[in-house]
Design a protein around this nucleic acid. Structure first.
Lengths: 152, 152
DNA sequence: GGCTTATGTTGGGGCAGCCAACGTTGGGTG
DNA sequence: CACCCAACGTTGGCTGCCCCAACATAAGCC
């Protein structure tokens, strides 16, 4: 072996850094996602999932639940609405709000994205045992929960 | 209390998704970072750390070790060089390469950034016990290692 | 000598998070 | 009631990060 190729490892100051690791895993996940679908579909998936689980929501409420900025929610909805995946109409009981509703087209799209998402998930976590996956998810959940007002 | 504020939880389809969780933790980390330093300082820190640990490197090698694009490495180095934190000169043994060297100014800056980074780290992981932090870091390392050719 | 490869550089595209501002609407208070 | 404040949707813009394409130069290989 002698002094074969350098391992090309990142410096130790970074290897130990949780924020660095998380960043890398995040972009890795983005890369894997881009191989199977449009990158922006991740946000679409999140919004559609929120509507499917909670029914009609206002744009601000979507943003709060997903940790997204109001502006960005607006942009996503414009795209979804143009594809008829979502229905947008002013709330009669509060004319400031827009009530966003999932259409059948949107539901179908949600399920399709779910399949792609699951596939990405499997690829991403391929190196971990089922127990480790569960552990990782649990730790991340706990971390996120500890930062309650993760507004946006 | 009755039916106080909705929990404002994200939909279940996302809560269980490792890629979603990782994304959220990553942006959370970015937010915490932005409170203490320039956002771009994260990449500066990475580059400076690589130079400090491995000595003089070429730009391409920096990119490979950190998982950064050659172009972006170039941009960072332009900034670092303009601040005299880094020294750039063509490698006499291979005139294609630029040998990048850390200057004393750069070393000082690295240590300063290290302090800020540690503080961010503590805030980010505040909700986890030391054992959990170690576990999380270990799992993320294993995940990253399982995707060897994480080129850039 | 020619071929391929690597390197640095320039320029550009796209996504994501964020902030500021505006007009509209509701809720509350005087 | 008039008034002020808070929330909402919308527009526009900025920054960081990842990525791709192209080019000229320089090394290495046959």
């Amino acid at each position: 072996m002698s002094d074969m190729e350098h391992p090309l490892q990142p410096p130790g100051r970074l290897r130990a850094l949780a924020s660095w690791q998380v960043n890398k895993v995040s972009t890795l996940s983005a890369r894997l996602t881009a191989q199977r679908m449009q990158l922006g579909a991740r946000t679409d998936f999140a919004v559609l999932a929120a509507l499917e689980e909670y029914g009609a929501l206002s744009q601000a409420e979507i943003g709060r639940r997903l940790g997204l900025d109001r502006n960005d929610v607006n942009g996503v909805l414009n795209r979804l609405e143009s594809h008829r995946q979502v229905d947008r109409q002013t709330d009669p009981t509060d004319r400031r709000r827009n009530l966003i509703r999932l259409t059948p087209v949107g539901e179908a799209h949600l399920e399709e994205l779910q399949r792609h998402t699951d596939a990405v998930q499997d690829t991403l976590l391929a190196g971990l045992t089922p127990e480790e996956r569960q552990q990782l998810s649990h730790l991340l959940s706990k971390l996120l929960d500890s930062h309650q007002p993760q507004s946006a």
